[in-house]
Every structure is written in C-alpha cells, then in structure tokens.
C-alpha cells in the first residue's frame, strides 16, 4: 500500500478543483434549500449553463472570455426566473420535478447531434480557456508541500480563482443572512403563510433565492469548465446535483461554512476510499474486487452516506438541529 500516494491524492482532492466546484454548487443550494427551503434539483443545469456559456462564447463564436462569463451569469438568472415563475407558487415537490427536468433539458440540448456545431455534441468543446490561463500569474513549476501536496501552475491559478470565488460568495451570503433580508428567507423556510400575513412578498423572496443560488451555481460551472479546459455534457447529469446535496447536508445546511467544509471533506473521503481501495486491489491486499468496481463502491458509499446522514445527523457537521428545514412541508 502506497500511503503517501493515497493521502496525497485525498488531500489534493480536498483542496482541489472538485472541492471548489462542489462547494460553489452547494453554496447555491444552501441559499435555496438551506435558508429558504426551496428544492432545486436542477443545480447541474445551472453549472452546465455556466460552463457552456464560456465554452460556446469562446470556442464556437470566438468572442472574448469575459463576455462568456457575463453571458453565463445572465443565463443562469434567466433560467432561474423561467423555472420559478410557474412553480414557486406551487407545492415544494413541483419545483423539484420541474428543476430536475429543466437540468435534463439543458444537458440533452447541449449533447444533441443537431446542435453539435454549437455545443460539440457528446464530445463537448475544448480550446476556450486560453485567455484564462494567459492571465495566470504563477510561473511554470510545481507548487505545494512535497510529498503530500503538489499542483502545477495552471492548477494553482484555477485554485486561486476558485477559492477566491468561494470566499466572496460565502462572505456575501454571510452579510445577507445577517440582514433583515436573510431573516425573511429563514421565516419563509418555516412558514410562508405567516410571512405573507406580515406583508412580505414571499414569491419575490423565493425568486431572489432561486436566482442567487443559480448564479452561484453557474460560477461553479465556470470553474468546472476552466479546470478541465473542456466541457462535456454528461458531466452535468442529475447525479452532480445530488452529490452537491450530499455535500451540503454533510457540512450542515443553513450554515455559511457548511458547504465549504462539506465539500472538502466529501472529496477527501471519497478519494481516500477510492484511491485506497484501488491501491489495495493493485497491490493484492484486496483480491475479491476489481479496480473498476472501486468506482461503483465509491458511488454506493455516497448514496449510503446521504441516507445515513439524513436519518442520524440531518444537521450535518455544523448545523443546528433546531434550525433545519427538512421536516417542513
């Protein structure tokens, strides 16, 4: 067993681009689900919109990178509005079904052969991240703490931008949730009729939460696309959304640090177990499974973890059990 490799991979995943992507996706869900009680099951769609906005703007149309960023943020807001208008007045599970359907629509559109000239079909798009990496201030080389942590200069640039985005999003959320605005959201999560009877436009607040969460989700999409220098439609399936929920619930919903710590821990554990098992299989320590089955085991553990968390510790690591909305209806 190569413990250095295993721990190194796990730690790198815990602070790497996956952790950033899922932290941002979960921060978005935290606004919607954690604080407001809205079930957005289509966060993957918002990530896809962010990722493809950059990719299509730059790779397909040859327009500037920052225009792509702007389009991504705008489209995410538009999608949230489109989804919210019909469903926010209805029961919670309608929003869940509509958002999950919308995310699938986004994925099916970008992977379609008919539109492959624009979106690249199932292969997706590449060659759009040049101007992003041109801004990279890190000179080539290895950075980190050998032998555990080591990133090349491109990764360092992605990580810097990504964690700064996480920090900004969390700070804004922190300020917003301390304000009377945040108070209205938390009240809506608990009983929207009571809030309505006090003269607050509940629909508008829910919409704001949906838009803000979706826009933060699109930022996760930016990092997803840039860190891989590629977009591929099937990476934005509903499983992504559910992993983000796992991350959020693991860290603790309705807590500012919940999504961040949840995401770091999620990836640390997932890679630790995955790499550990792979290593054990390769070195012959474990003989009854194959390397490819390790992936399935990882998936099973995510599902199992989500179930056990909700049953035994729905407040996650940081949450306050008195404050979570899971039992609300």
């Amino acid at each position: 067993m190569d413990w250095t490799l295993i721990i190194s991979r796990a730690v790198e995943a815990g602070i790497g681009s996956e952790a950033i992507i899922y932290a941002l996706a979960a921060i978005g869900l935290n606004v919607q689900f954690g604080y407001t009680g809205l079930l957005n099951f289509g966060q993957a769609g918002f990530l896809a919109i962010g990722a493809y906005s950059i990719a299509v703007t730059v790779a397909t149309f040859g327009l500037p990178f920052f225009l792509g960023v702007g389009i991504g943020l705008l489209l995410a807001a538009v999608l949230a509005l489109l989804l919210g208008i019909p469903t926010l007045r209805l029961r919670a599970d309608y929003l869940a079904i509509v958002t999950i359907a919308a995310a699938e629509i986004v994925r099916l559109v970008v992977r379609s052969v008919a539109l492959s000239d624009t979106f690249g079909g199932t292969d997706g798009l590449q060659a759009f991240s040049g101007s992003f990496y041109d801004m990279n201030p890190y000179p080539p080389g290895e950075y980190g703490i050998p032998p555990i942590i080591g990133f090349d200069n491109r990764s360092m640039w992605v990580l810097t931008v990504g964690w700064v985005l996480v920090a900004i999003a969390s700070f804004i959320l922190f300020m917003a949730m301390k304000s009377p605005w945040g108070r209205v959201l938390k009240a809506i999560r608990e009983d929207e009729d009571a809030v309505r009877s006090l003269g607050k436009n509940v629909f508008s607040y829910k919409m704001q939460a949906l838009v803000i969460g979706g826009v933060i989700g699109s930022m996760a999409g930016f990092i997803f696309a840039l860190s891989r220098s590629a977009v591929q439609p099937d990476l934005y399936s509903t499983d992504l959304t559910f992993y983000a929920y796992t991350v959020l619930i693991l860290g603790g919903a309705a807590r500012i640090l919940g999504p961040i710590v949840g995401s770091m821990l999620f990836w640390l554990l997932l890679i630790l177990i995955g790499t550990g098992l792979e290593n054990a299989v390769n070195t012959g320590t474990i003989t009854f499974i194959t390397v490819n089955q390790v992936g399935a085991i990882r998936l099973m553990l995510v599902g199992l973890g989500l179930i056990l968390l909700l049953i035994y510790r729905p407040q996650g690591i940081f949450g306050d059990k008195r404050e979570i909305s899971l039992d609300a209806r």
Binding site: I172, M175, A176, K178, S179, P180, W181, G182, R183, V184, A187, V195, L198, G199, K200, Q208, I212
Partner: peptide
Amino acid sequence: MRLGAQAQRGENFFRGLFPALW
C-alpha cells in the same frame, strides 16, 4: 417581532449587504 415591521430597508438584498444602511 422584527419580522413584523413594514418597509424595512434591510429587506432588500443589496441594501441588506451594507449594515450601515439598515
């Protein structure tokens, strides 16, 4: 109780971000 008050400046998202305003 605070939630019951009307026309709160801090109930706007952007103003809410600046405590000085509310």
